[in-house]
Design a protein around this nucleic acid. Structure first.
Lengths: 133, 133
DNA sequence: CCGTATCCTTGATGATACTG
DNA sequence: CAGTATCATCAAGGATACGG
């Protein structure tokens, strides 16, 4: 039944004393954030809808991530035995409890992302020009 | 001068309409969270100290991540031209502004990580035993 | 429609050795 | 001490084709 034995990134190391490592693995692994966002933003939707929103994702990876999120209790999958089959995904209450954190991140972005951009320019300007003075 | 042309994970896709994708790349890339945490928790410290705290990290990767964080303005690097050389890293004010988000995540962890664990057990229990009833 | 099965590529990481 | 250079590895991700 598929060899999807997903191992968390921190698997090798018991604890590097970073208390939020587990939740970071959970929520901020590749694709999971956009998926959760799409489900939160546009509500319950079918596989294809998600696929179309996350433009560059492949069905294989989308399935992998959705299964993982379902297993972690953040997403609920509902299978309707019709022809053609219909499957709907929605965010669970547990998944929804992440919303404030997402909002917090969005807020930080709005206020500080330009400072990051500025820092990058400064850094590059300092390193780049072999032309000193 | 090294070919460290680091590309963000969302590089290929202009925007998949997930507004927090940039900040996720910035803060939750591999190793960045533990590094920021260590700097925030134990204050300014030298390269080796960080290396020892992040048990499994290699000097190469640690350097890469520190450079990235420095470029993004989240970490400040100070070089002391002594013998032996001494380099100290500390978190910047911009980096420090992430602290509430980290706290928020730690709080969510404390309150919900066991629910995730429970969800996993339930899911596995439902899938695993081909022996129904 | 909703996936799964294969094959393959690639980029991040680890290991190791070596400088200023 | 604080890295850098080089090589080897390896698993996540992408491409493609097919099935219920």
């Amino acid at each position: 039944m598929s060899s999807t034995t997903w191992q968390p990134r921190t698997g090798g190391d018991p604890e590097q004393a970073c208390p939020i490592a587990p939740v970071v693995d959970l929520v901020f692994s590749r694709w999971t954030t956009p998926i959760l966002w799409a489900l939160h933003e546009y509500g319950r939707q079918r596989f294809v809808e998600l696929e179309r929103r996350l433009v560059t994702i492949t069905p294989k990876v989308l399935t992998q991530r959705l299964r993982q999120l379902e297993r972690d209790g953040l997403v609920l999958r509902t299978y309707h035995a019709e022809v053609p089959p219909r499957v709907e995904y929605e965010i669970t209450e547990l998944g929804h409890s992440l919303a404030p954190i997402f909002a917090h991140l969005a807020q930080w972005s709005a206020g500080n992302l330009d400072r990051v951009e500025q820092a990058r320019e400064d850094y590059d300007a300092r390193q780049r020009p072999p032309r000193g003075r």
